[in-house]
Nucleic acid binder design. Structure first.
Lengths: 241, 241
DNA sequence: AATTTATTGTCTGAAAAATAGACAATAAAT
DNA sequence: ATTTATTGTCTATTTTTCAGACAATAAATT
């Protein structure tokens, strides 16, 4: 089974996306795992067809992994160090033997493709984690959410990519009001604050945070949310359309 | 004469740099011109060798055009629309005839190379315009500084690239204190202010501007600069090392 | 040599924004 | 009816930004 039709792809150029989700007051990243016995973790990556733009390619790659459309996407950086090659993969091939790969139906040309030097365009995506149905593609054998503070060691510079993506996310969170892409349709003010605290990894003062967010004039207040807790019920909010 | 040795280059990936300079209170961009009778303007571009990083490639390309080393460089965006092809060049070839190109010693393979789809990594550079010795390379037949408000129509999306570069420069000017790369070694406060005004295309209040810049604590004050004008002589400043 | 002119450097007060403290409102448990 | 925990908002304080004013001064003018 041949996965990469190099004739229709741009050579040596890849896309890697940091897919951010949010749950249990923690910022998470969707991380696929490849590897036949030794696990190799990597970001959700892919390649660019000749007949699509890089943004379309990034979207397609994300849709494959998350099963949802209309994902918030932002390009944040290109990674193009010399010898930016998947040495972990090469090492893995050498360890278990090239034949074993070929025996399970993996194409020689795919191995050749994947062991080249790649310049990679970094994107980050913000998704409502509840809507995502994580799916494996290509060589993935599983895929899972990881707390950003507890990411596995990934291939190449992928851990570094996450750091840069987080930095870009922090820069954009206020400016572009994109944080709501990480939340469900409706939410309480406390949930917004906890999201911000997870992203920035620091506490905000409740009184002033609420004022700041409301002053942005992008939320509409809905009915109250009765949680059953023995205290005043918070309002639900929704991002204005 | 063959210019592009495609075996040693990454395919379909290019670098385009917006080289910013500053003179006469105006922000300028260094723009090479190619074309054999019809002028085609473009940004300072080039390609990436297999044995260099994208940052090194960007530096090399800049050094070729400016004759100076240690240039301040910043990656700002990747441009990868589908069919991002140099149609102006193709049109030009068709207009004057392919043979004419080949007759002046231009290699067929170079034409083939240049008429492919390219994904281009955008960099911007900040240079001391007095130190730059602009030089043509490759197909350039001249190169000159243009006021950013008076740029010629360039090939492909290059005018758009300049807009994005300027936006990125504005975002970074305060935050990264990079503006001083556009100025000579020593300068007066008024010159700094005029630079900021040129970049942001708006006026700043003199009293508060001076305070803001001095509060950054990155400048050291040197001797006064006696200009011969009939008024108080301004101090010279230098960026702290 | 005194005065004038244009510009520079800095101060001060006013306005606006960010931060901290306080308290009433309230849903459910006691 | 009272208590508890949390929410929404108000006010006072601090900090930052912005605008106006003025002294200092290099050289031209008188």
């Amino acid at each position: 089974m041949k996965l990469f039709d190099e004739k229709n792809l741009i050579q040596q150029l890849s896309i890697d996306s940091v897919i951010f989700g949010y749950k249990n007051k923690e910022l998470k990243v969707l991380v696929p795992k490849v590897g036949f016995n030794k696990p190799l973790y990597s970001l959700s990556g892919g390649f660019i067809f000749q007949n699509e733009s890089i943004d379309s390619a990034a979207k397609r790659i994300l849709e494959e992994r998350t099963s949802i459309k209309d994902i918030y996407l932002e390009q944040f950086r290109v990674f193009g160090e010399i010898n930016r090659t998947n040495f972990d993969f090469i090492e893995h091939i050498n360890e278990i033997g090239r034949e074993k790969f070929l025996n399970v139906g993996i194409d020689e040309s795919d191995i050749l493709w994947l062991t080249k030097r790649f310049v990679s365009i970094g994107y980050y995506a913000l998704v409502d984690i509840n809507k995502v149905n994580p799916k494996t593609t290509g060589f993935d054998d599983s895929i899972a959410w990881y707390n950003i503070k507890d990411l596995p060691k990934m291939i190449m510079d992928h851990n570094d990519m996450v750091n840069h993506a987080l930095e870009a996310l922090r820069q954009n969170l206020d400016q572009k009001l994109i944080g709501f892409n990480l939340l469900p349709e409706t939410f309480t003010m406390k949930e917004v604050q906890e999201l911000y605290e997870a992203v920035f990894d620091k506490a905000f003062a409740r009184n002033n945070f609420q004022k700041k967010i409301l002053d942005l004039d992008v939320l509409e207040r809905l009915e109250k949310k009765f949680t059953g807790a023995a205290n005043k019920a918070p309002y639900l909010y929704r991002f204005k359309k």
